[in-house]
Design a protein around this nucleic acid. Structure first.
Lengths: 259, 259
DNA sequence: ATAATAGTGTCTATCAGACAGTATACA
DNA sequence: TGTATACTGTCTGATAGACACTATTAT
């Protein structure tokens, strides 16, 4: 930047300014579907993304991410919180909401110079189902990532956003404890493993139970649930033999490629 | 968002729009300072951040990050690339430039509703020194993180941005191979260790050499440099006894807290 | 010889990974 | 009783972590 442009920087009217800064939210959920077997089994879990069919220009009829424009009285994170609450009816701080990135390629929005800010959220399945049923003004859909990326006609650059959000949630699933947002407070190791696999299909860890319970370095992430007498608690909700219940401890290890 | 607001969404003039979307860049460098000892030693390395002293309103006299407003013909990443090139004189793709986040708290900029996008870059020390010497229109400073965060008077919310950038570069240093941006193509393990420690002071790994060379899982990140005959190459630039030279292989392991 | 940095040897406890085997509860 | 899921035993080789020891070169 030249000295000259700096001197006139305060005169914001001198240059063209953006026509809007929306927050768009990639709302992920993990659907649970009962499997019909003749013994108890874990439900099938699938990662889904919520989309809304647009009713007006631009991209009328195409699917797009829910979102809305930011106001000058709020930060973009607050915009996203507000949108998330409007979409789901539940306070945003009850769940995971995280900034993803900025999408600002010229021409990405035919309405003008619109710089979009993508967020992703983890939402309970029931809430999205309720939303789907209640709102007959809008067509709401839950799609797998493959459907959204490969089969659907999406508006704007929302395909890029969904793609990036998918990569990010996979990273986060393996490097943080966001898995807990997809689980009840107490869960079995099979459930945890299944949640990880639903988000990161190529995660393979045959000795998962052994490793997470007996390896000193990883043991701290979760702990066994016990009752007042110190007896281990288990659940046979999804299996014949009861499985030990675990909970997250809140501990977050720092990962390093050098140690 | 209500159905009503959606119908009028295309009318961008109806609502107040942002007054600008700048890209601000946290430019990091690793300074090398010779130590005066009576034998060869590694130079001292320190992580520094480049700041510019503002000459005009707002925050005249305060230090701030270099940056500039985005144009409607470019993406914000391109804005950052352009600014980086203007600041350093070297093409941005020659070095690391990465998006950090959006800063949009109302009132953060007295000039109006200005939504800032922070990036961070890793720049060679020599370039910043040249910049410092050449430009007498602007006062350019190189500061340690502690100085920048604790002693300097910073404009806007740039203290928050520098803080966030510092956390991010520490994360990246341990979980990716950005260390290579601070090293020559071929380097000794002492140099690598020192670079990591300069960015992440509390990184401690007494058996660093042993681990990185003999552990199967980490061995793939770097490899020994050999000549045409397959003889290992070493350097005694910084030590009496020559040290084996290594280079990064390009391999990037995927980290996981579950495996 | 001495200093300074760069390694290597060696030991023990722990961990990874594989695979067989046992445990529990339901139908 | 069989079946499905949840573990546990056991073995081998690899790794972590500590600390003493040796190696190479300049002064």
């Amino acid at each position: 930047m030249t000295d000259n442009s700096k001197q006139h920087m305060y005169d914001v009217k001198k240059y063209r300014t953006p026509d809007g800064a929306p927050a768009d939210i990639v709302m992920f959920t993990l659907t649970k579907k009962e499997r019909k077997t003749f013994t108890k089994t874990l439900p099938l879990r699938e990662l889904k993304v919520m989309l809304i069919r647009r009713r007006s220009w631009p991209f009328a009829g195409k699917w797009a991410l829910p979102g809305g424009f930011s106001r000058d009285t709020e930060s973009l994170f607050e915009t996203a919180q507000r949108e998330l609450k409007e979409e789901t009816g539940v306070d945003a701080d009850a769940r995971h909401l995280e900034y993803l990135g900025v999408y600002s390629k010229p021409g990405r929005d035919p309405r003008g110079w619109i710089i979009s800010h993508a967020f992703f959220a983890l939402v309970e399945e029931e809430i999205l189902e309720k939303r789907q049923a209640a709102d007959d003004a809008e067509e709401v859909g839950l799609f797998t990532i493959e459907e959204a990326l490969e089969q659907l006609e999406l508006g704007f650059d929302h395909r890029d956003i969904i793609q990036d959000a998918y990569h990010r949630i996979q990273e986060q699933m393996l490097s943080t404890v966001i898995a807990k947002k997809f689980l009840p407070p107490e869960f079995t190791l099979s459930e945890l493993y299944q949640v990880i696999k639903a988000v990161v299909p190529d995660f393979e860890e045959p000795n998962f139970i052994r490793k997470i319970t007996s390896t000193r370095s990883r043991k701290g992430i979760i702990e066994e649930v016990r009752d007042e007498q110190g007896n281990p608690l288990s659940s046979n909700q999804y299996s014949q033999r009861p499985a030990q219940l675990y909970r997250f401890t809140g501990l977050m290890p720092r990962l390093s490629i050098y140690s």
